[in-house]
Design a protein around this nucleic acid. Structure first.
Lengths: 219, 219
DNA sequence: CTGAGTCTGTTAGCTGGAAAACATTTGTTG
DNA sequence: CAACAAATGTTTTCCAGCTAACAGACTCAG
C-alpha cells in the first residue's frame, strides 16, 4: 500500500531529491486556492479537506481525503497556469509526503505499478464527485444529509454503544458545506434526526446510530 | 498525440490482442449505464456524450468528449462490481479504439509516457466536473447557460459570419441536460439571448455570436 | 464572573426554477 | 398533402431551500 516503504528512504531521497516527509497541525493548509503549487501529496496519516471558496464567500467542500489518498497531483498541460482551484486543509494533525512535479512525473513514468494505483485513485475521486453532482441535482437536502452521515460513519466512524461515533468533529456549518446546503436547514434536519433517534450529537461530537443505517437507500 | 500510431498496427495487435478499431453511428451507445463493461475507449474521431439517467427519468449530461479523449477506463478496485454509472453515447458518427481491461492495465504499466498522458486526461476531467458542481451550486441557470454556450463554441465551434457555429446539433432538451436545468427555462433564456443578438439559432443549428464572447465572466 | 466569540436553534419572507400543461411551429412519411 | 411526431415557445402554479435576523447555549480568557 505504502509506495514509499518498498525501499529505503535514502534510496528514494537520492532518486527523487524533492521528496520530503512533513506534517501540519489542525486547520493548516497544504495549499490554498489561488496558490501556484506544483507538488504532489500523499497522505501518510490524517484527514484533509478539499474545498472551494466562492465569490459570494460560501465554502463548498468537495471531499474529505484520508490516509493513503493523494492530492495536488498535476496541473494538466503546460499551457494552463498552475493555479490551484481548491484549498487543501488539514482536519486534525496530518502527516504527508510531498514531491515536486518533475520528480512526481519521473516517479510515475518509472514506477509502473504505482502509476496504476494513482490512476485508480484519481478515477475513484472523479466518480465520487460525479455522484455528488448527481445527488445535488436530484436529491433533497435531507436525503443528501443522511447519505453523507452514513458515509462519514463508514469512513471515520468508531464503534460505540449504539452506533458509530465520528472521530472528526464537524460544525454544522462544515456539514452544510459538505452537502452543499445552508446552515439553518442542516440544523433543523439534524434536530429531526435526533428526535427520531437516528443521531446523537453535541457540539463537538456526532454519533450515527444503528437505526439510521437501516435507511440506506436501496437505490 | 495518437498513441496507437507510434508503431504498426500489427505490433499492437500482437502485444494487446483485445485491441480493436470500431465505429458507431449517431446515437449509438459505447456502453450503457448499468452495463458490466471492463473496456477502455480512446476516441479516434467524433463526439461522445457521457450522461446519467436518474430514477425520476431525468437525464443529466456530465460531459462531452471529443477526439483524443478517453473513457470507460477502469472500474476501481477488484471488489466493486464493474457496473457503469453512466451512458456513453455517440453524438454523430464516432470512431474509436477499444481495449479490454487486462490489456489496458498492461499498456499502462508498460508504456510510461502513455500512462502519464492518461493520468492527465482523467485529472482534467475531474477538474472539469468539479467546476460544473461549483457552477450549479453558485450560479443561476442563465449564467450557466452562457458559460456552456461559450464552452461549446470553443470546443465545437466553426468560424462563420458573425460568430461560431456549433458543429453539433443539440436540442434544447439536450442543452438543458448539459447545464442541469429544465427545458422550459432554457427555451425562454435562449429567446432572450437571441433577442439581445447574442445568439442565432434554428432547430438544428446554433451560432454563438461574437457579441456573446464579451460576456465572459472576469471571475 | 463577565464579556466576547462561537456554535446551535428557530422563525419569517422571498424567489428561482421545477413541473405540468398546452399552443405553436417545423419536419417527416406514407 | 394530410397527419403524425418532434421540437420549441409560453404560462401558471407551487415549494424547497436560501437569506436575514435574532435568541439561546456553550466555551474560554482575563
Amino acid at each position: 500500500m505504502n509506495p514509499f516503504l518498498s525501499c529505503t528512504w535514502e534510496t528514494w531521497k537520492k532518486e527523487y531529491p524533492s521528496i520530503q516527509l512533513a506534517s501540519l497541525p489542525d486547520k493548516a493548509f497544504l495549499y490554498r486556492q489561488g496558490d501556484r503549487c506544483s507538488s504532489f501529496f500523499w497522505i501518510k496519516n490524517g484527514i484533509v479537506k478539499l474545498s472551494h471558496l466562492t465569490k459570494q464567500g460560501n465554502e463548498l467542500t468537495l471531499t474529505l481525503l484520508k490516509t493513503g489518498d493523494i492530492i495536488g497531483y498535476l496541473q494538466v498541460g503546460d499551457f494552463t497556469n498552475q493555479i490551484m482551484e481548491e484549498n487543501a486543509q488539514a482536519l486534525g494533525k496530518v502527516d504527508f509526503y510531498r514531491l515536486e512535479y518533475i520528480d512526481f512525473k519521473k516517479l510515475i513514468t518509472s514506477q509502473a505499478n504505482l502509476s496504476w494505483q494513482i490512476l485508480e485513485s484519481v478515477y475513484a475521486h472523479k466518480q465520487q464527485i460525479e455522484r455528488k453532482l448527481r445527488a445535488i441535482l436530484t436529491q433533497s437536502v435531507e436525503q443528501r444529509l443522511i447519505v453523507m452521515l452514513l458515509e462519514l460513519a463508514k469512513l471515520f466512524g468508531i464503534r460505540c454503544m449504539h452506533g458509530y461515533a465520528l472521530e472528526i468533529s464537524l460544525t454544522q456549518q462544515e456539514l452544510a458545506d459538505l452537502v452543499g446546503a445552508s446552515r439553518p436547514v442542516i440544523s433543523t434536519i439534524m434536530n429531526q434526526f435526533r428526535n427520531r433517534g437516528m443521531l446523537d450529537y453535541t457540539r463537538e461530537h456526532i454519533c450515527v446510530n444503528d437505526t439510521a443505517l437501516s435507511l440506506i437507500d436501496p437505490r
